[in-house]
Design a protein around this nucleic acid. Structure first.
Length: 273
DNA sequence: CCAATTGTTATTTA
DNA sequence: ATAAATAACAATTG
């Protein structure tokens, strides 16, 4: 599930626990999600400590802890952060549980493509500082997009949009949504887009990020659990998941096919090769 | 049993 | 040598 806006949504799920003492840390230490993390260090440092603040960028979440340490969470394909009542007994896929007096903060991930990172230091870890500049930042210009598409000119544009080094936070559904709005066929070699199409892709990147954040992550400080957000039927999002869907703009049939190794959905009436 | 899944990375191929 | 394609990772669901 988690792309840019879902990651931001899940980040907020731990907000009620920020600034509260972590009494105990429960882990499944052998779980694959800890493959890049020294679990003993994490448990030692977080027990009796606090999460002070959090941020999300791309598909990464960063928690700044007191005592000069940093907890990172990547949700992978199936990860979630949620809150449970105090005394919660961890379930099978709950790999990390921070126990507080009034609640438990839970990281769960059945497929374990996600990962937990933990660093000690005065400044944020490099895996955070080296993330590509956000799509909604001023650095993400139409020129930067044009250069990147040219560099990967032989790849299908859909595959290029999934490259995190230029499109941080974009995942499979966002890439399809962007191309559908820009009316660009996902199989187009990235180098064949006209300047107008490049500009359109750039603009829709920003628009989809802004809309997704506003709709899915909410503007408030804390969105109650369950991602039962209403996504308008005018988005491709609501029609892309199974065969037989119809394009909300043209009314025509949507196509679903592998492009760049991923299931891709597009509207042939709108997106021409 | 087979295919599919909203992500990333190591390995293989061109 | 580089860029692009593919396999692999794991668990569950249809």
């Amino acid at each position: 599930m988690p792309e840019l806006a879902e990651v931001e949504f899940y980040r907020k799920q731990w907000n009620p626990g920020l600034g509260h003492l972590i009494q105990a840390v429960r882990v499944h230490p052998r779980a694959r999600v800890f493959r890049e993390c020294t679990v003993s260090l994490l448990v030692g440092r977080l027990t009796g400590a606090m999460l002070r603040s959090s941020s999300a960028a791309a598909k990464q979440i960063l928690f700044r802890c007191n005592g000069g340490c940093w907890l990172g969470i990547h949700l992978g394909l199936s990860g979630e952060l949620r809150m449970e009542p105090a005394g919660y007994a961890p379930h099978k896929h709950d790999h990390l549980v921070l126990e507080q007096r009034e609640r438990c903060l839970v990281f769960t991930d059945p497929r374990m493509f996600g990962r937990v990172l933990f660093d000690v230091g005065r400044t944020p870890p490099t895996w955070w500082t080296r993330l590509a500049p956000a799509i909604l930042s001023a650095v993400f210009t139409t020129e930067a997009v044009a250069v990147f598409l040219r560099r990967h000119r032989h790849m299908p544009v859909k595959a290029v949009l999934l490259l995190q080094e230029r499109f941080p936070g974009v995942g499979n559904w966002m890439a399809d949504e962007i191309l559908w709005r820009a009316a660009v066929h996902p199989k187009r070699p990235a180098g064949t887009l006209t300047p107008a199409e490049v500009r359109s892709v750039w603009r829709e990147c920003r628009k989809v990020c802004r809309l997704a954040l506003a709709t899915i992550a909410g503007r408030g400080r804390y969105v109650p659990p369950a991602l039962n957000v209403h996504i308008p039927g005018s988005w491709l999002f609501n029609h892309r998941w199974e065969d037989g869907g119809r394009c909300p703009r043209t009314g025509g049939r949507l196509v679903r096919e592998q492009v760049g190794g991923r299931t891709t959905c597009w509207s042939p009436a709108r997106q021409r090769l």
